[in-house]
Design a protein around this nucleic acid. Structure first.
Lengths: 347, 347
DNA sequence: CTGAAAGCGCTTACAG
DNA sequence: CTGAAAGCGCTTACAG
C-alpha cells in the first residue's frame, strides 16, 4: 500500500510509488549512504557526487520520508505550540498573534517547523499527550497554562519530554523550564508610577487567579501598596473585556473612593475606561487608568493607554532558545524578562 | 542515543530508554506480533493475552513510537489545518474559531489529531510543503486561500496529497476538493431581500477579490441587480472593519444616492453602520444594511445585523468527511452548502 | 489465536 | 571521500 492518491496513480497519472533514497542513489550512481550524507549537510561528499545526487533528487522528485528519518534519528525537526485555551478566547486575545509569530520566526531561523496543537477539552488532552510522547515533535512550548491539565504536564515532565512554558506554570514552577515577563515587578512599577503622579487610592482589576500572570500582578500591586492595601479596592477579572467592565461596575457600585485603577491587562483597562465614562468620571482627570501588555487596543483606546510593555519578541525568542537547550539535553532553566512602563494619556 | 532528557536519565531518575513493543512483549510473555495486534484493535488476540499485554503496557509505561508506526503503515492519524494568512488577520477574523473548533471536534470523533500550520511567508511555504509531503500528516485542510501560494497547492496536488479547501480555491477549483457556503446564492438572497423590503438603490462593499468568497458575493450582487447594476455603487473592502469604514466613507463621498448597503461580511457591515451614523444617516431608516456570515459582531452591533448565516458546523464536518474520503483513496468532490437569511434590526 | 520473519526508508558508525 | 551493513520500532501477510 503506498501513501497517496487513488487507483494506483498520482493525480497526474504517473505511478504513485514515492521515490526513496535508493531510487536517488541508483540514478546518481552512488551508494545510499552518500545520498544520505548529502541530505544531511553534504559533509564528506565529493563535488561530483553532490552534483549527481542533486540532479537525481530533482529528476526523481524525491522527498525524505519523515517517519524513516525520525525512526533513525529520534528527531523530527518540529516543535509544538500547545494551546490549552478555548478557541474563542484564544483568538480573542491580542497577545497571541505576537507570541505565535515571534515563535514561528525564531523556529524558522533554525529550520524547525511550528505545529499548533489545540487542547482545550480533556479528551483532546489525552490525544495531545499521545501525540507529543509518540515522538511527533521534539518538544513543546506551553502558553496560557491554567493550572488545570496539570496531569498532562506532569506526564510530559515524567517522560523527560522537553517543555518550556510561557509564564510560570503554577504547580510545576520548579520542574519545568519557563520564560516570563516580570509580572510582579511590572505591577509594582505601575502602582509606583500611579502614586508618584499623585494618585493615592488605587484600585485593581485582577487577571484570572489560576494563571501566574493574574496572581503575580495582583501580588505586585499588593506589595507595592504595603499597608495601604485594601480588599475593597480589588475586583476580579479574567482578562476579557466583559470581565473588566463588570469589575469596574462592581467597584463603582461599592461606593469606595479611588482615583486610579490598575487593570491586569489592556483589554480590561479599556473596558474599564468605557464604564468610567459611562458613570460620568473622566479619565485621567477623575480616575487614572493603567493597563498591562501594551497590546494593540492600548493605542486605539481613548485616551490612549498607559501600560506596561511586554517584550513579546524577546519572550518568544527566549522560549525557543530554552527549548532548544532542553532538546539538546541541557538543564532546566528559567528566565524573567523586564517589562517597561509606556506613558500615554490614560494615566 | 535515546530520545529525551539529559545525562542518561529521565527527569525522575529512571534510566531513560523508551520501552518498545519488545519490552512489552517480554513482560507479557507473548510475541511482538501479538502486542501489535492488541494495539491495533485487539482482533485475533485471546482474552488472556489481552490482559497480559494491557498490564505490561501499564507497567512499562509503553507508548507507541509514531515514526515506527508511520513508517510501517504510511499513515499518521493526524491532519493539518493550513493557515495561509497573517497571524494578526487570522486572529482577528471572527469566523476562524468556529471553523477550527468544528474541524477539531469532527476530527477528534474519528481519533485524528488536528495540527495547525502557519504559512504566511514564502519561506514558511517551502517548509510547510516539505512537512506535508514528508508524511507528517495524512492530509490537509485549507482555509482562506488567497490565490497566491498556488505553487505549494499545485505541488501538493501533483504529489497526490489529499487536500480539501474551505471555499473555492481560485485557480485550482477543478483539481482540488472543496466545500463552500453558497456565497453566490447568499448574496443574491440578501439583495433580493433588500429589494423586496422596498429598497431600490443598493450599494455593495466587496470582500477581497483574490478570494472566492469576495468574488462570488460580488457576482451574486451583480447578477441579482441585473441591468440595475451600477459601478458607482460598489466600493472595495478586504473583510476588515477598517476597510469597511473606508469603503463606506468613499460611497458617501461619491454623493451617489443609495438606500441600502450589502457588505460582504459582518465586520465591514458594522463598520459601515458606524460611518453612516457619523454622517447623520439612520440605520435602517435612511439606509438598510445587510452583512454576511452571522458572526459574533452581528449581535453586538446596534442595530443588530441582518445577515446571511454560514453553517460553520456543517462546513467543518463536511470538510473532514471529504478529506477522509480522499485519504482513503476516494475521488475528488465538491460541495456547496446553502446559507440562510437572518433578519434582525439593520435591514 | 499466535509466532517468526520480512519490510517500511532512513542514518550512522565502521572499515576502507 | 565512499560503500556495505546494522539498526531504529513498528505492522502485516504467512504459516501454523
Amino acid at each position: 500500500m503506498s501513501q497517496f492518491g487513488a487507483e494506483g496513480t498520482r493525480n497526474d497519472g504517473r505511478p504513485r510509488r514515492r521515490p526513496t533514497i535508493d531510487d536517488v542513489a541508483a540514478v546518481a550512481q552512488v551508494s545510499r549512504g552518500t545520498v544520505s550524507r548529502y541530505l544531511n549537510g553534504g559533509r564528506w561528499v565529493s563535488r561530483e557526487a553532490s552534483v549527481a545526487v542533486e540532479g537525481a533528487i530533482r529528476s526523481t522528485g524525491y522527498r525524505v520520508n519523515a517517519h524513516a528519518r525520525g525512526l533513525a534519528t529520534a528527531r523530527t525537526g518540529s516543535v509544538a505550540f500547545l494551546l490549552n485555551e478555548s478557541t474563542t478566547r484564544l483568538f480573542g486575545d491580542p497577545n497571541f498573534p505576537s507570541l505565535i509569530s515571534g515563535v514561528a520566526e525564531a523556529l524558522s531561523r533554525q529550520g524547525q517547523t511550528l505545529v499548533l496543537l489545540l487542547a482545550n477539552q480533556p479528551a483532546d488532552e489525552k490525544r495531545t499527550e499521545e501525540f507529543l510522547l509518540g515522538g511527533h515533535v521534539d518538544g513543546a512550548l506551553l502558553v496560557s497554562w491554567h493550572g488545570n491539565s496539570s496531569g498532562m504536564l506532569r506526564n510530559l515532565h515524567r517522560a523527560g519530554f522537553p517543555v518550556v512554558a510561557c509564564g510560570i506554570p503554577l504547580g510545576m514552577e520548579s520542574e519545568i523550564s519557563w520564560v516570563e515577563a516580570d509580572d510582579y515587578g511590572g505591577a509594582r512599577s505601575m502602582v509606583s508610577y500611579l502614586r508618584s503622579s499623585g494618585r493615592s487610592r488605587i484600585a485593581h482589576i485582577t487577571g484570572p487567579q489560576d494563571t501566574s500572570g493574574g496572581v503575580r500582578r495582583l501580588q505586585g500591586y499588593r506589595d507595592e501598596l504595603g499597608s495601604g492595601f485594601e480588599h475593597s479596592l480589588v475586583a476580579n477579572g479574567d482578562y476579557s473585556a466583559a470581565s473588566g467592565a463588570a469589575a469596574m461596575r462592581e467597584l463603582l457600585a461599592r461606593r469606595v473612593e479611588f482615583d486610579a485603577v490598575f487593570a491586569a491587562n489592556d483589554e480590561m483597562a479599556v473596558a474599564a475606561i468605557a464604564e468610567l465614562k459611562e458613570a460620568g468620571r473622566s479619565v485621567p482627570g477623575d480616575v487614572a487608568v493603567g493597563g498591562f501588555d501594551d497590546s494593540a487596543v492600548a493605542l486605539t483606546s481613548d485616551p490612549q493607554l498607559t501600560t506596561m510593555r511586554q517584550p513579546f519578541g524577546q519572550i518568544s525568542a527566549e522560549m525557543v532558545r530554552l527549548l532548544r537547550g532542553r532538546i539538546d539535553g541541557g538543564p532546566r532553566s528559567t528566565l524573567s524578562i523586564d517589562v517597561e512602563l509606556v506613558r500615554r494619556g490614560s494615566a
